[in-house]
Computed example of a mutant assay.
Amino acid sequence: MEIRPYEPPDEAGLWQRKRDFELGLGSGTGGEKKETKYEGKLDEQYREAWLEWVERCVGADERCVTVAVDETATEDPSAGPADAVAGYVFVLPESHRFIWDAAVLNELYLSPAYRGTGVADDLIDAAVAFARDQELPLERFVLDVDRENDRAKAFYERHGFEHWGEMVAREL
């Protein structure tokens, strides 16, 4: 498994993992209504806008998006380009540090087939290293975890994250 900064040829795989991430959020933590909302937003317009945002962030610092690429998938003639990207971690660029006065872990996703293999640990290690290099108002690395996602909460706790406030939301 290669852990490295995202590159444009990874686009199809990154987008597929982003879809998997979003659909997993919708289906696993909030019922049918949330799942329908998450499915509905993942149209072509959203895809283009999200990938443009990725490019802007990566343009600010290539370490904003780190991918885990399974080299064996690229050797499989039946595999498509999206199959090689096993997962990713997305840390907002330093220019966003005033959102929470900290480094922000936007997303981390790993395909289920690779969970429990240490790849997620490698991705979070890359993210923490990048966050430590940022000039921050507070020496903190923050993220949002759904309270119903016990697997994710346990993963982040194992990596030293602690409860720090709580995000609330409302419909607009």
Results as ranks from 00 to 15, higher is better:
K41R: 15
E71K: 12
F141G: 04
V54P: 06
E94C: 10
D83E: 14
A129P: 00
V85A: 01
A113Q: 11
F130N: 06
E71Q: 14
M1E: 06
F155Q: 06
V91G: 04
V67E: 04
P112R: 10
R47M: 09
H163G: 02
K41H: 12
L108H: 03
P8V: 05
M167K: 10
Q16I: 00
Y38I: 00
A154M: 05
L108E: 11
D133Q: 13
D133H: 07
M1I: 07
V142F: 03
V128R: 11
T66M: 08
L92A: 13
L105S: 10
Y156M: 05
M167R: 12
S111H: 14
G40R: 09
P93G: 11
Q45A: 15
A120N: 07
V69E: 13
F21L: 14
F98E: 14
G59T: 12
A12R: 13
R132F: 01
G28L: 02
D144Q: 13
E166Y: 02
T66R: 08
S111D: 15
E11Y: 02
M1S: 07
E32D: 11
V104P: 00
A84D: 11
V91T: 14
A102S: 15
H163C: 00
G13K: 07
P5Q: 04
V54H: 07
F155R: 08
A120V: 04
H163N: 03
L138M: 07
Y46Q: 12
A113P: 00
V89C: 06
Y114W: 06
H96V: 03
D125P: 00
D133A: 14
Y109V: 01
D101Y: 12
V119N: 05
Y114G: 07
R47I: 02
P112H: 05
W50N: 11
G24A: 01
Q16V: 02
H159G: 09
R158W: 06
